[in-house]
Simulated scan of single mutants.
Amino acid sequence: MSQMVSMAELAELMSSDVRILDVRWSLGQPDRRADYLEGHIPGAVYVDLESELSRPGRPDEGRHPLPSTEQVQDAARSWGINDGDVVVAYDDAGGLPAARAWWLLRQGGVDVRVLDGGWAAWLAAGGDVETGSAEYTRGSVTLQDVAGRSLTIDEAAQFPASGVLLDVRTPERYRGEVEPMDPIAGHIPGAVNLPTTTHLAEDGTLRDLDELRRNFAAVGVLDGTPVAAYCGSGITAAHTALVLAEAGIDAKLFHGSWSQWSNTPGRPIATGE
């Protein structure tokens, strides 16, 4: 089953019962509730990535520590989700923030997908825009363990010995030439670089599946290859996991990512290609 929905598919789902999550977020503007209130896909509820899809933590846990199953379940119920519901997440950043919701809910056992092209695709297609806040009766969904396929920092360190560990940040951050967010520049030894933005067309939709598979194959990711992904703080890595799933490849995530690695004393640092 595809992890993405097109505009037409979302319109069809909206004719029945679907929960739509607005997960607009960015590093420079993490709280996007004002944008949501100004306009969103009809029926969508706003999701606060910082407080509902992450939790506060120490620096050595990373900038967006993995929330507990109970925390995500409570949030999902507040969005009106019940067992068996279909959920669609979207954003205005190529699906990167929405993928965080996709990952957590998918691990929890929810039928969740991401709108291909997101908010821009909705507007370009002339979709209706709703203002204000959508609210639902509290749901009763029960989630499975959302941490089921998440790597610890020690597991991430060992992963390149048996599989492909993807660093999905920009090449200059991978090489250690710049580091705008974390205390040390570089990458985890043994990781290979494949920026998650490589998978997106100019309009923010996913590239052709054959092209995606060729890009993964170029860095050693083939059917049956153990693969895991990390990024700066565990957000954009979920997007690579989404793309891998769309290509039929199951992945794990190192949620602590570079922010945890670089804030943990004694961890080796690699630079360059």
Score class of each variant (00 low, 15 high):
R173S: 04
P183S: 02
D167Y: 01
A147R: 13
S162P: 05
L166S: 11
E177L: 05
D182G: 05
P183H: 09
S150F: 06
R169Y: 03
S150M: 10
R149H: 13
P171T: 06
A156F: 03
F159W: 14
R175W: 00
H187Y: 04
D154K: 13
Y174T: 05
D154N: 13
R175L: 00
Q158A: 15
T152Y: 03
I184W: 05
P180R: 08
V178G: 07
I153W: 11
F159G: 08
P180D: 08
R173A: 01
G148S: 14
A185Q: 09
Y174Q: 02
T170S: 15
E179V: 04
G148T: 14
T152R: 10
L166G: 03
Q158K: 15
V164P: 13
G176Q: 07
P180K: 11
E179I: 06
T170V: 11
P180Y: 00
E179W: 01
V164T: 15
Y174P: 00
D182S: 03
A161W: 04
D167F: 02
L166C: 08
A161C: 07
V178L: 06
I153H: 10
L165V: 04
V178E: 13
P180H: 09
A157P: 06
D154M: 12
G176F: 00
R169H: 05
L166F: 01
D154E: 15
G186K: 01
I184N: 09
E177A: 09
A157R: 15
A156C: 10
G148D: 11
A147L: 07
R173F: 00
I184Y: 03
D154W: 08
G148V: 03
T152H: 11
L166E: 02
V164G: 13
P183W: 05
G186L: 03
D154H: 12
V164R: 14
E155F: 08
I153F: 05
R149T: 11
P183L: 07
P171Q: 10
A161S: 15
E172Y: 07
A156Q: 03
H187C: 02
F159D: 10
Q158S: 15
D167R: 08
A147M: 05
P180M: 01
A157C: 10
L166T: 02
P171D: 09
G176L: 03
D167I: 02
I184F: 00
S150Q: 10
R169F: 01
A156E: 04
E179T: 09
G176M: 02
R149G: 05
G186H: 03
L151N: 12
G186E: 00
V164C: 12
G186A: 02
T152K: 09
L151S: 07
R175M: 07
L166P: 06
E155T: 07
R175T: 09
H187S: 05
P160Q: 10
A156L: 07
D182H: 02
R175N: 06
A161D: 13
E177R: 10
V168K: 05
F159V: 06
E177P: 05
D182T: 04
R175F: 01
A157E: 14
E177S: 08
Q158I: 08
Q158L: 14
G186R: 06
S162A: 14
G186D: 04
P171L: 02
Q158E: 15
P160S: 10
T152S: 15
L166M: 11
H187W: 00
P171N: 11
A161E: 15
G176W: 00
